Simulated scan of single mutants.
Amino acid sequence: MNHHITLLAALLTSAPLAADTLPDRQTELPAVAKKANTDYLTPRPLTAIPDTEFGRKVKYGYSLFVDSQQMRGRYVGNEQNCVNCHMQAGMKANAAPLWAAYTAYPAYRKKNDKVNTYGERIQGCFNYSMNGVPPGDSSPELVALSAYAYWLTMSGLLNKYGLPEMPVPELSDAELILGGKREDFVLPAEIAADFPVSERGNLAGRGYPKLPSPAQEPSIARGAQVYKTTCAVCHANDGQGIKGADGAQYFPPLWGKDAFNWGAGMHRINTAAYFIYENMPLGKSVQLTEQQAWDVAAYMNSHERPQDPRYRGDLDANDQRYHKHQGYYGDAIDGHKLGSRAYPTATIEPQPGT
């Protein structure tokens, strides 16, 4: 096992590709057209998590996933929780479920120009979606979040292949953060034969389903009306979400200082449209027309938010290097270039081991 990890470590630190082969390093979530009558992976209920040391890591990962504000000021710098973008505690198909992501890594990502382990993929979410700093490779938080994703994946696979009584194999911390797209990832023989490494990033329900291009160019003005009638009830007229009397953020901000930053995938108009159409309004998904989803995604992403962490003082250069995609960063909206009045990225002191 150590031999395989050493080989992977060498791959992760290999020389990057030439810059001119990467005109836009801001890769996005995979998106394919939604298929009808798909048999999605179904993880075991949370009550099936064993009361063992490994099971306690899984439970801790679940807790962090649904209430990421536990990490506020250490790793999280905004009012977001992982579950805001990965619905139903990361189990909902077509809402970037964890059970489909775990077996898609290790994988190369243009965003940081290297092969990423599953743990590194999570670390990227802390940098961008959570506007924070990533927990270290051996941190209890990263291990726990990886353990939760692994448990969802493996329990779902065991169920699918008629092995509902087989316990989920327990992995070491070092193995958990690697992900399942590797030859030495242990699977029962009946699963391994039908689920080769080449197919592990293609589980149905991964990412957000792709929408056709809209009949009309996405409109910020039309999107404002959709937002007012459909979204404001949960996210407030000012886009700052809803807080309880206890100060807890029950519905997340969509822009402003406590939203995801300009480096997060959700600031792309197309990614946001895919997510919104399939998953919003909460509990009543697929209520908007496709055009409305495109329009309200444009409206949401026409507002300032925290700066892209890769920004080095030159907005136009950052725009050209990282934002050659469907978004408004660097564009003139309401009299100023978006990004020029961005809120600060999180000022969190890195924790030991990060």
Rank of each mutant, 00 (worst) to 15 (best):
residue 329 Y to S: 06
residue 186 V to F: 13
residue 23 P to C: 04
residue 191 I to Q: 10
residue 95 A to N: 00
residue 313 G to T: 05
residue 266 M to E: 14
residue 244 G to S: 11
residue 67 D to V: 12
residue 320 Q to D: 15
residue 256 G to S: 11
residue 333 I to L: 14
residue 91 M to I: 00
residue 37 N to C: 04
residue 65 F to V: 05
residue 85 C to M: 04
residue 144 A to V: 02
residue 135 P to T: 01
residue 332 A to T: 11
residue 181 K to Q: 06
residue 201 G to T: 02
residue 223 G to E: 03
residue 147 A to T: 03
residue 103 T to F: 13
residue 274 Y to Q: 15
residue 25 R to C: 08
residue 194 D to Y: 12
residue 32 V to A: 11
residue 109 R to T: 06
residue 1 M to K: 14
residue 173 D to T: 04
residue 319 D to P: 10
residue 282 L to A: 08
residue 344 P to K: 11
residue 315 L to F: 05
residue 87 M to P: 00
residue 228 K to T: 12
residue 19 A to N: 08
residue 72 R to K: 10
residue 289 T to S: 15
residue 185 F to N: 03
residue 92 K to T: 12
residue 340 S to R: 12
residue 45 P to Y: 02
residue 46 L to N: 10
residue 53 E to Q: 09
residue 26 Q to E: 05
residue 198 S to C: 07
residue 268 R to Q: 04
residue 324 K to F: 13
residue 11 L to T: 10
residue 98 L to I: 01
residue 62 Y to R: 06
residue 13 T to L: 08
residue 240 Q to Y: 01
residue 193 A to S: 15
residue 196 P to V: 11
residue 183 E to T: 06
residue 265 G to Q: 09
residue 89 A to V: 01
residue 6 T to Q: 15
residue 23 P to D: 09
residue 32 V to S: 13
residue 225 Q to A: 13
residue 58 V to N: 04
residue 70 Q to D: 07
residue 295 D to T: 07
residue 353 G to R: 00
residue 112 N to M: 00
residue 59 K to W: 08
residue 302 S to V: 02
residue 129 S to F: 09
residue 74 R to H: 08
residue 329 Y to C: 07
residue 271 T to N: 10
residue 209 P to E: 13
residue 147 A to C: 08
residue 163 L to G: 02
residue 325 H to V: 14
residue 272 A to I: 11
residue 110 K to Q: 02
residue 335 G to H: 07
residue 85 C to Y: 01
residue 130 M to E: 03
residue 183 E to H: 04
residue 205 G to Y: 06
residue 9 A to M: 06
residue 259 A to R: 00
residue 245 A to S: 04
residue 270 N to Q: 15
residue 129 S to V: 13
residue 42 T to K: 14
residue 174 A to Q: 06
residue 315 L to V: 14
residue 177 I to Y: 03
residue 115 V to I: 13
residue 308 D to Q: 01
residue 99 W to E: 11
residue 24 D to M: 12
residue 226 V to C: 10
residue 238 D to M: 09
residue 175 E to K: 13
residue 200 R to L: 11
residue 128 Y to L: 13
residue 227 Y to C: 09
residue 353 G to P: 04
residue 305 R to M: 01
residue 138 S to K: 14
residue 293 A to M: 13
residue 86 H to F: 05
residue 306 P to G: 08
residue 247 G to M: 07
residue 44 R to V: 11
residue 302 S to E: 05
residue 213 S to Q: 15
residue 95 A to Q: 02
residue 314 D to Q: 11
residue 281 P to S: 00
residue 129 S to I: 09
residue 178 L to I: 09
residue 303 H to L: 00
residue 264 A to R: 05
residue 1 M to S: 14
residue 60 Y to K: 14
residue 199 E to A: 14
residue 34 K to L: 12
residue 157 L to P: 06
residue 297 A to P: 03
residue 244 G to M: 05
residue 328 Y to N: 14
residue 57 K to M: 08
residue 218 P to K: 07
residue 34 K to N: 12
residue 330 G to A: 08
residue 334 D to W: 10
residue 231 C to G: 12
residue 317 A to I: 07
residue 154 M to D: 05
residue 95 A to Y: 04
residue 290 E to C: 03
residue 27 T to L: 12
residue 145 L to N: 02
residue 336 H to W: 05
residue 213 S to R: 10
